[in-house]
């Protein structure tokens, strides 16, 4: 490797596979996604990967970079190529479709299982709900609302790796924001869905999700909130 180029190892195949090595020219402000795109367009057109917006909005381009899950479009090579090399792999805890593209079906199915969707209680004929930004519940919801569904937290989570039916930090974080939404009508079903086996109690609070979330959210804190909420519901016999 010279200062003008970077040695990049990229995973090829599915669960079984190999690393292919490429030399990629270095450029200023180069992101990991720029590297992968360069390889696919100039060195190996057969490389499979996923991206869309390129600006940190869509959550499509997460990959494992030097062992840690990252959103590659906003991850500068300077920040992660510790020893002048990059090793790029697909996200962990999800089946590999091919190369760097993973199957996120189960990840999103768990959002459905956690009932992490808004249940309206009014119609278009009703007036707007008035929720003060300073309301404590609104503040809790706001703290976790900017999730882009990238799967970084799910890939980083040890509990997901150990316990196949664990709902994971992203689905539980979304459930917490909805738990704090006064307009939502799905509270009792949701609290039951996220209690018990595979639910919020399975979290060990390792905080890898908090450490690596590209949006700087804290799913561990959201899950702690859900633990308190489910404990109260269990004591009252509501679940």
């Amino acid at each position: 490797m010279s200062k003008d180029s970077l040695t990049v190892e990229i995973w090829r195949g599915r669960e079984e596979g190999r690393f292919d090595t490429f030399e990629v020219p270095r450029m200023a402000s180069q992101t990991v996604l720029d590297i992968v795109t360069y390889v696919q367009r100039n060195l190996d057109p057969g490389l499979s990967y996923r991206f869309a917006c390129r600006v940190g909005v869509c959550g499509s381009c997460a990959m494992t970079v030097n062992g840690k899950p990252r959103w590659t479009c906003r991850t500068h090579v300077d920040k992660v190529a510790d020893e002048g090399t990059l090793r790029i792999q697909p996200l962990k805890n999800m089946p590999v479709i091919r190369d760097l593209a993973v199957d996120m079906t189960e990840f999103f199915e768990k959002w459905t299982k956690a009932k992490a969707h808004f249940v309206p209680t009014t119609t278009r004929h009703d007036d707007f709900a008035q929720v003060s930004p300073s309301d404590p519940k609104r503040k809790e919801a706001t703290a976790g609302i900017e999730c882009i569904n990238c799967g970084v937290c799910y890939s980083a989570c040890d509990t997901v790796a150990w316990l196949g039916d664990y709902l994971g930090p992203a689905a539980l974080n979304r459930a917490w924001t909805l738990h704090n939404d006064v307009r939502d009508g799905g509270q009792s079903d949701r609290i039951k869905a996220i209690a018990g086996t595979g639910g919020c109690q399975a979290c060990h609070s390792h905080q890898s999700c908090f450490e690596l979330c590209p949006k700087h959210l804290n799913p561990t804190a959201s899950i702690a909130g859900l633990k308190r909420a489910t404990a109260k519901a269990a004591l009252k016999g509501e679940i």
């Binding site: 018990g196 086996t197 109690q201 004591l235 679940i239």
Partner: peptide, 13 residues
């Protein structure tokens, strides 16, 4: 008692 309640009370215990 539902399994969800039992698991949550075990966790609390």
């Amino acid at each position: 008692m539902t399994p969800e309640r039992a698991e949550t009370l075990e966790w609390l215990m």
